[in-house]
Simulated assay, not measured.
Amino acid sequence: MSERDLSPDTVEEYFSAGVEAAFTLSESTDSVLEIDPSRQELRLISPALGGDPDVASYEHIRVERINVIGKQGDWFRLTVNATYLHYEAYVLIVSIVDQLESGASFRHAVSESLAGLKGLLSSRRKMSDEKEAGLLGELIVLGHAIDRLGEDQAMQAWLGPYSEEHDFGFEDFDVEVKTTRSESRVHVIGTESQLQPAGDRTLYLLSLQVTLAGASGDGFTLAELITSIRRRIDRARRTFDTALQGLGWADEAADLYVTRFQVRSTPRAYFVDDQFPAITAPRLDQVVPQRILVSAVSYRVDVSHLNFVVPPAPLEDFCEEPA
Rank of each mutant, 00 (worst) to 15 (best):
A82P: 02
Y84M: 08
Y87W: 12
Y87R: 06
V91W: 04
L92D: 06
L92A: 05
I93A: 02
V94I: 15
I96C: 12
I96T: 04
I96G: 04
V97P: 01
V97K: 00
Q99W: 00
L100C: 09
L100V: 10
E101A: 08
S102L: 15
S102V: 11
G103P: 07
F106A: 10
F106P: 04
H108D: 15
A109D: 05
S111P: 00
L114K: 08
G116A: 14
L117R: 07
L121E: 12
S122G: 02
S128G: 06
D129N: 09
K131T: 12
K131E: 13
E132D: 03
G134V: 07
L135E: 02
L135Q: 04
L139R: 06
I140K: 12
I140G: 03
L142D: 09
H144G: 00
H144C: 00
I146D: 00
E151C: 10
E151F: 10
D152A: 13
Q153N: 12
Q156L: 11
W158R: 08
P161Q: 01
S163C: 06
S163D: 15
F170E: 00
F170V: 01
E171S: 11
F173A: 08
D174T: 03
E176G: 11
V177E: 01
K178I: 12
K178N: 13
